[in-house]
């Protein structure tokens, strides 16, 4: 079993889930949906690069995302590195799917359990592809999962913004209920 959150490992900027005292994940899966939609134009549990692990009874959900390990074992494991798995000028490891052969070596090398790299399986071997978080590196608005999270429960690791500075934050109004 791989160990999660090894203390000696260093990570780059990555998606983090805020504590529920700041914002509780509503469990909507908008992060997964928007990830797959913006990257691939589909909605599918095989295409998202961020994962909502649902708490069945607790109903408290955990967001799992690539931690962007500085030593990038996934990149090192790629037999076609610099073509299929690339490293950009900001240290972000991303996949160029034109060259990805779907060998799964990056997934096996991921130090997290479950691995933070998704996989599209197809009968057609040429269509088997790995899907990994690239922090929406070419998207001017930044990561789509963060932009479309309805409760702002996720953000970037080294840029946590205090609650009262968040976009759209207002003091809560008293509410009514009906059914």
């Amino acid at each position: 079993m791989k160990k999660q959150g090894e203390t000696t490992r260093k990570y780059g900027r990555h998606i983090v889930q805020y504590p529920m005292e700041y914002s509780l994940c509503a469990g909507c899966t908008a992060c997964e949906i928007m990830c797959a939609l913006t990257h691939d134009g589909v909605v599918s549990p095989s295409y998202n690069r961020i994962f909502v692990e649902r708490g069945t009874s607790s109903m408290v959900h955990t967001i799992l995302a690539c931690q962007h390990c500085v030593d990038h074992p996934c990149y090192d494991a790629c037999p076609l590195k610099e073509k299929a798995m690339c490293l950009d000028e900001n240290g972000i490891v991303y996949i160029n799917e034109d060259y990805c052969i779907g060998c799964k070596k990056c997934i096996k090398a991921c130090v997290f359990d479950p691995p933070r790299i998704n996989y599209v399986w197809s009968k057609d071997k040429t269509k088997r592809k790995a899907k990994k978080c690239d922090l929406c590196r070419t998207r001017p608005e930044g990561p789509a999962c963060i932009e479309y999270c309805q409760v702002r429960c996720i953000g970037l690791s080294d840029n946590q913004i205090p609650a009262n500075k968040q976009l759209g934050f207002q003091a809560k109004e008293g509410g009514r209920q009906h059914g």
């Binding site: 529920m20 479309y148 702002r152 968040q166 759209g168």
Partner: peptide, 22 residues
């Protein structure tokens, strides 16, 4: 897809804000 993204913002507006446990 563009319309889906617009709808997500429009139907959520203006409450895309933190949801603390209280």
């Amino acid at each position: 897809i563009q319309k889906v993204m617009e709808l997500r913002m429009k139907m959520g507006y203006p409450y895309m804000r933190p949801n603390p446990v209280v």
